[in-house]
């Protein structure tokens, strides 16, 4: 199945490059870590066979679009495609310069979850095979079976694939994800059940680990500012020292800046080397934006960005 898709993808990409329809292609290649895929940016036909598709292609490749010149084809899962459109809406890239190749995605296996469930590191796992709604994980200690929901990325569990129409080409057939909205909302619900003081304490504790590597910001396709507020010095909004206070303000402001651009793709949480559960924030922000303004990022290339539009009457109940 995957092999078939891969061949189809390679064929299409070869075609695009040969005909000169695009100058470059952003896709996935085999990574050097076990199970990993890695972003692959090619312009030469000879490299086409390095492209791969599998359930581990978690990177949201749209983060590379603003930096890659010329006409670009990009391999996109449905969530990534929303980010691409979000970039178009925010005038970071012209729509006509991007050729979006949709790949059918039934969800991405979150290796972090696999490691947690098995107590093993990924290089101690021999094989991960996914059939139907079961995922079997084999290691020296034997094989264990999990439901797909247990190992899929949170962002996939919240995915409502099917509503999106902006692909220029789709490889194979788009299929719904084994989504489980209740499961993904669980983390948010648990948070809401706490008192404000408990919530603050929770985040204080989480952000005391932050090392301010800015991987969350750098991996984020919609954190596209040339100059981030954290680097401003006159006035200085936060200290460069990674104290929890400054770490928390950094992330809170980042979240408010990407509101209406963030598609809850989950890349920031996956990138964080100290496991700060940023998805609990991005997920809630998507909800807030939708509740208040009936807005979802990246759904309509012609819709203005959230912060560049308004309705004469909205959110007045929050205003004195």
């Amino acid at each position: 199945m995957t092999k078939e898709l891969e061949n189809k993808l390679r064929e299409e990409v070869r075609n695009l490059l040969e005909k000169g329809k695009v100058d470059r292609v952003i896709g996935y290649g085999a990574g050097s870590l076990r199970f990993a895929a890695t972003p692959l940016i090619i312009s030469d036909k000879a490299d086409v066979d390095r492209l791969i598709i599998n359930p581990f292609i978690h990177n949201n490749l749209s983060v590379f679009l603003p930096d890659v010149s010329g006409k670009v084809a990009i391999v996109a899962k449905e969530c990534d495609a929303r980010s691409i459109i979000s970039l178009v809406q925010n005038k970071q890239i012209p729509r006509e310069n991007v050729y979006i190749i949709g790949v059918p995605c039934s969800g991405i296996i979150d290796l972090g979850k696999v490691e947690k469930l098995t107590g093993l590191d990924r290089d101690e796992i021999d094989d991960i095979s996914w059939q139907g709604d079961k995922v079997t994980i084999a290691s020296a200690g034997g094989a264990k079976e999990f439901t797909a929901q247990e190992v899929l990325a949170d962002s996939c569990l919240g995915c409502d694939a099917g509503g999106f129409r902006e692909f220029d080409l789709v490889i194979g057939e788009m299929k719904p994800v084994a989504a489980d909205k209740e499961l993904i909302r669980k983390r948010i619900k648990d948070m809401e059940a706490m008192s404000p003081a408990e919530r603050w304490e929770f985040w204080k504790n989480e952000f005391s680990r932050c090392i301010r590597c800015y991987a969350c910001r750098q991996i984020c396709p919609v954190c596209f500012c040339d100059r981030c507020f954290v680097e401003e010095t006159e006035p200085q909004w936060i200290s460069p020292l990674p104290r929890w206070q400054d770490n928390l303000i950094f992330q809170a402001v980042r979240m408010m800046h990407v509101a209406g651009r963030c598609t809850d793709c989950g890349e920031c949480e996956r990138a964080c080397p100290v496991n700060i559960p940023l998805g609990i924030l991005t997920g809630k922000m998507e909800d807030i934006v939708e509740e208040l303004f009936e807005y979802r990022a990246g759904m309509d290339k012609d819709a203005p960005p959230l912060m560049a539009a308004y309705q004469p009457e909205e959110a007045e109940d929050l205003i004195r």
């Binding site: 890695t38 590597c213 991987a215 750098q218 990138a271």
Partner: peptide, 20 residues
């Protein structure tokens, strides 16, 4: 091309010592 310029590889490198 695929590097996103974060601080992970240097902050977590046991020999990287640069400071501000």
């Amino acid at each position: 091309a695929k590097c996103v310029s974060c601080g992970i590889c240097t902050f977590l490198c046991p020999t990287c010592y640069c400071f501000d």
